[in-house]
Design a protein around this nucleic acid. Structure first.
Lengths: 216, 216
DNA sequence: CACTGTTTTGAGAGTTACTCTCATTTCATG
DNA sequence: CATGAAATGAGAGTAACTCTCAAAACAGTG
């Protein structure tokens, strides 16, 4: 009856073991979801993305193929779905209002990278690599990008007292996301050398000031 | 034997009737390609994108389904493939070297919009609308975005004497494209009201200077 | 524990985009 | 016209999804 379908909703994002009082049903759903994801990551690492079929995933996760599709609308979603966007948008909103915009952004990006590194660094890399190598995954990632863009433009609009649906805010938000996404691809293409945070810093500089020495 | 497969290559971009000395084979291929596209546009207008199957397209274009796939790798490509990117990149490269970068960009964008308006305004709108409404098409569009990004960063690097594969140039190029793509979606979402060129101008302002009155 | 209603699951059939193969047709050329 | 190359069509095959429906697992109640 309630509006939000727990089947398609993501589980509580940053909760490792603290699932206090959930019904057996809910706990099972979370377990199933994680089983499907784990099976997928393992199979993709073994065989590659394209060679991995939903049937294999279902088999390893010990569920039926139907169930896989009930939990994830597409194969790409199994790999890519994450819950960080909303968290980052909230974090951004929570920064002190006096803080310069770019400082807030830097702060939040740093947090996100750290959290990701602490929790599941290999998954993050697998994702980045897949989004470079597999067109379908990349497409899905771009797609989620526009969702993120929507969140970001709300945060931006709120912060600057602007209309979130103006061309200006929308363009600004999307150009931001485009730039950040490129960083992730650059990082994957260069085999994850160096610190991601350094790359992000350089990207933010470009987003803030344009290309260095643009007008000598 | 030659490397470039004429089957997958696009026909000469901006040539309406001037196909002088092409073999019968080549002319037929161009006709087939255009027939498939025309059939697709018509069917999509009549029934919508999802309801239109490859079989229907093949039937109306009077070719076999196999042939449709020979000409276009995916259904989305039939709708989206265009040849303007390369032209614009070349145009950009052809601008006088003294001209300020943003002036060059504005000039080229203006040209592109005019050309598109003159040639096939309704197709451009159909595309924009589909890329708002149909996830698969939108994804494919994002995908082609990253191709465009590659062209753009070459042009940028050349112009500014920078490495086209540096993070800076890549981020700059991609943020640019992200912003411009958002304009197209904004335009479609607002039912193509107003002049696209005005929206693009506002977008370019944002890309150049950031959000207006960002630091009051 | 038994009873009842709701949620979740599995099984199966069906659709469709896309791939591959091979025989046939269509054009190019000497 | 003959010969070779390229384009087409036909058909079988795969795999991601969708829909439907009946069986199973859970939740709450007497």
């Amino acid at each position: 009856m309630p509006d939000n379908d727990p089947m398609t909703a993501a589980p509580s994002p940053l909760s490792p073991a603290d699932r206090p009082r959930l019904g057996l049903r809910e706990r099972k759903k979370i377990k199933t979801r994680e089983a499907i994801r784990a099976a997928t990551y393992a199979l993709v690492k073994e065989q590659g993305y394209d060679a991995t079929t939903i049937e294999q995933i279902a088999e390893r996760a010990e569920v039926s193929p139907s169930t896989v599709f009930r939990y994830f609308p597409t194969k790409e979603d199994i790999v890519l779905t994450d819950e960080y966007d909303q968290l980052m948008a909230d974090e951004l909103r929570g920064r002190p209002p006096g803080e310069p915009w770019m400082d807030s952004v830097r702060h939040v990006m740093r947090l996100a990278i750290e959290a990701n590194n602490r929790e599941n660094p290999d998954v993050a890399r697998l994702r980045a690599r897949l989004s470079v190598d597999v067109p379908a995954v990349r497409s899905r990632m771009f797609e989620s990008m526009s969702t993120t863009g929507r969140l970001l433009r709300e945060a931006i609009a709120e912060r600057h007292g602007k209309d979130p649906d103006s061309v200006e805010v929308r363009v600004y938000a999307m150009s931001f996301i485009g730039g950040l996404m490129e960083v992730s691809m650059y990082w994957a293409e260069h085999d994850f050398e160096g610190e991601l945070s350094d790359l992000v810093d350089r990207a933010l500089d470009v987003l803030e000031h344009g290309l260095p020495i643009e007008n000598p």
